[in-house]
Structures are given as structure tokens and as C-alpha cells.
Design a protein around this nucleic acid. Sequence first.
DNA 1: TAGATTGTTAATCGATTAACAATC
DNA 2: TAGATTGTTAATCGATTAACAATC
Lengths: 217, 217
Amino acid sequence: MTERMLPAGLAARLARYLQVLMQARKDGRATISSQALGEHSAINSTQVRRDLSGLGRFGKRGVGYDVEDLTGHIPEILGIRGQNNIALLGAGNLGTAIAGSGIFDGTWFQIAAIFDADPARIGQRIGELEVQRLSDVARIVTERNIIAGALAVPATAAQGAADVLIDAGVVILINYSEALVQVPPGVMVQPVSPAGGLFYNLYLLGSAFSLRSSNSQ
Amino acid sequence: MTERMLPAGLAARLARYLQVLMQARKDGRATISSQALGEHSAINSTQVRRDLSGLGRFGKRGVGYDVEDLTGHIPEILGIRGQNNIALLGAGNLGTAIAGSGIFDGTWFQIAAIFDADPARIGQRIGELEVQRLSDVARIVTERNIIAGALAVPATAAQGAADVLIDAGVVILINYSEALVQVPPGVMVQPVSPAGGLFYNLYLLGSAFSLRSSNSQ
DNA sequence: TAGATTGTTAATCGATTAACAATC
DNA sequence: TAGATTGTTAATCGATTAACAATC
């Protein structure tokens, strides 16, 4: 009896709900409405309700969804569990910020190693971890069962860093650089850049102005 | 004669194509195929071709799209232009990394001011800018015609920082913190966090394993 | 010529929207 | 009870997919 695949769109939306829910829980919220959940994940509230009602009786009319409850159910539905290790490449300002941000606290990810190309940084401690040599990536990725890599390096170094990680067996890349990284089939890239979204915001802003202008004439 | 509104989905996709194209141009690529454009923006290549062919004759069969050409056309279609100023809140590791990354170079955005709550950081120079007091946000946002704010502060300080910026007149927020920021209608928030995407990647990874397991039995 | 890739069609599927009864 | 919000329906719209002729 194999788990049934979810439609891709649904699974992607559930993952976004989960992110919002986990943060709402950190904020101490007990319940959240479909509207609030939708606003924070840029998804229509009717869509949120239908997605969730199709998977169980999670909501309470007049109240909303229990944050703690939903935060427990969605990972089960998505089948995500365990601790997944990340290698962070780049121990500059960005890498240091990521390592110290606690951004992965309480998720199924944790930073398990930090690497840098600069000899001056090797051996420095960032939190609990010591910055390691790039030449040790392959060995440490294997030893520590690392499946993901975070690229916190300059754009010019991103592809090289990605190649090193992929050769070592990493299958998920978190790309904090603005470079377009090429990867072979089977490797997933998660870009982290606000630019595309900002261009759309700028379009919306311009459209709003146009509408106001034409309305006021 | 007012500009016609584009369907929301199309405008959002064009914004993402534009981001990829601008980076491809930085990388020195002369042409790009609908498939490559789609892969880097997580959009189906047929959808890319239909979006673009509906707006003009941009492609060349057997070759692809001219990067320089398309990079010029899409901003016109979206009606985005000018220089839009950003206030960066937070001059720690993350803020320093953002300010020094050149991430907005060549876009329609530029960082025009940096603020921090820590008195020890006031007056420090980061690139061309001097770190300013939070109490000066309102004045400087007005003086420098700042429309967007980047939140590079700890999660616990994010809502307060957002409120200060919104009160000063900012209408776009780039949220580098993992906090859920509440904003009034008319203010747009651009979250910058890989977590939701990573959860989805993890689901895909698990599904792929399940498929392999069930296939191999 | 051969290979690659666009432009476009047709069919299916999924998302969006409005509306509202059910119920907490 | 009154207010809020879910669960659900129906109608429309947009996205996805496969396929392939056109053409660079």
C-alpha cells in the first residue's frame, strides 16, 4: 500500500500553509482563519478552505483552524519527517547571518556544516560549527548525511559551489545568490531572491496609479 | 487611453521571466530557450512560449529568444521604469550582506538609506551609505522618496520595523525575517524565505523514494 | 539538409470567484 | 442570540499537457 501522490499544486500550497502555521505557532497564535492563512501565503481563502476540508475536518466554524493541530497534520500528509542536514557554503556576512538566524529552528532542516573558500576563515567558529575547507565537502557531506546545500557565496562563485555540492551527492540547493544555477535532473533548486516578486509589485503599483489617474479624470 | 491591465497570473510570470533574463544577461548569454526560461522560473515551457507569443514576435525558431531584446520589452509591457528607493532596516550581518551584494544592481530598485536600532552602529559606513537612527526613518523616507523597505532585523523586531516604515509611507516591504508581518490594505509584502519551498522539495524527495521503493518490489 | 525550437491547437485539468447554508 | 468563519456548490477562467507543423 503505497502513499498516494498529491496533485503538485496542492502539495506546494500545503507546504506554504505549513510554513505560515509554524511561524504562527512561534508567535503564540492558537487559531488562524483561512483568510489569514491565505494572505500570508498569497493564496485565495476559498482555496485554502477547500484544500484543507478535502483532507480532513480541521476547521471549526466561527473560529478558524487550530494552529497546533494543523501544524501536526500537514507534515503527516506531506510525509515529511526526520532531520535533514544542510551544508552551508560561504561564511561571509550572509553565511554568518543565515547560520545565526535560527531560520531552520523547528523545521526538518538543520545546518550541519559550514564551508568557505577563504583560507583565513577556515577554523573560525560560527555558533556550534567550525568553518571547513571546500576540499572537505565530499567527505563531510557523506559522513554527516547531508542532502541539501545553501549557496551563500558571491554570484560568480555560485555555479562552482553548486557543482561541488552536487558531486558530493546533495539533491536540494538553496540559492541565496542571484546567479542562475544549472543543475542535472533530480537536483532541486530553491531560489531565494525577491527580485521577481518586486518587479510584480512594481507593476501592481503602476497599475494602481494608472487606475487612480484615469478614475480622477 | 489607459494601459490595459494584464491578467494577474501573466503579469506575475512576466516578472519572473524578467528576473531570469536580467541575470542571463549579466551572465553574458545572448539567447535563451523557452525551456531554460521555464526551468529557472518554475514555469512550463509551453506556457512561456504562449505568454510571449501573445505579446509579440519575440522568438526565433530553432534559436530561442534574444536575451537583450526581451529584457527590453518586458519592462515596457509591465510598465515598470524609473529608480525606486529602498530603505534597509538592520545593519547587522544580514543587512550588510544585502547592502554589499549588488542584488539590486541593474534593477529598478536601489538602497537609498540604512537604519539600525543599535546606537553603536549609527554613523558606520556600509558602502556609500551611513547607518542612521530609527527615529529618522519618517524624515528620510520622505526626503529621499523611498517607497520600499527591506526588513533585515530579528524576527522579534520585524513587526515594529514594518510599522515604522508603513507609517512613513512605504508601500512595499521585503521581509527577510521569518516573522509573519501584518500590513494594512495597499501595502505589499514580499517574503524572502526558502522554508515553504524546502518543505515542498522534501515532499518531492519522499515521493520519489516511495516510487522507487514500490517500483523495485 | 538536419536539428532545434518556436508558435499554435485541442483537450484536460486545476484554480478562482461569488455565494451561502451550516454551525461554532 | 449575534457574529464569525467553515464547508461546499456552481460557474468561469486560467494553466497544463501533448503534439506537431512551421521555420530558423
